[in-house]
Amino acid sequence: MSAAKNINITLKIWRQKNAKTKGGIETYKLDNVSTASSFLEMLDQLNEQLVNDRKEPVAFDHDCREGICGSCSLYINGRAHGPDIGITTCQLHMRMFNDGDTIFVEPWRSKAFPVIKDLVVDRTAFDRIQQAGGFVSVNTSGNTIDANSLPVPKDDADKAFMAAACIGCGACVASCKNGSAMLFVGAKVSQYALLPQGKVEATERVLNMVRQMDEEGFGNCTNTGACEIECPKGISLENIARMNREYLKASL
């Protein structure tokens, strides 16, 4: 354990008033940042300083601050969710940085994720992909079959869970050089493809979700694997392969 200490840093942050205006990088000095702070707490500190200076604070998305809601979405020093792996931005801590560091903070960059303000982007494209087919068409009813009447092999259930662990943060899109959303879509398609409940609508699901994905303007997968490395939940590329299989099956 290294004892927490205070460091001074320089921040280069993308500022953009709204979707219509042009943005640019602004430089801020921030002193006395505890290395025990999380990255977002450091931004809180910056915002407190800005507000006290009568300046507009930096807008960024965040909510649960424990790595599960998928709100936080910063591109830090050239990497989605920053230099650590297997974590979201809110789980990144300042002990990953050194005194005197310059840190770039940018929003996710994707045609399908337009900037709303500063570091906040619009990720509703993901919602629309989900709406196109990311569900099992079962109505609410107290009379669905008993949960245990359809056994699911443990291996399939585990794989489905690992795919379903996706938090929809968009780091895959942000880190992909092509701005491709295939890890996100692949994970959702896989979750349902692996479970008997999802098989009934498998054909329409994968076709509709991929169609929506393409319409949103995401790029194509070139299998660089960047998404898998930067995914805070470690979603595997196997899910993209499975989607490709499902899509082929559905198309033929």
Partner: peptide, 17 residues
Amino acid sequence: KARPVAYAKSNPSANSS
């Protein structure tokens, strides 16, 4: 086209070949 605005700082070698 999928990324009309480029990143100011990018570190792609951290995650891909």
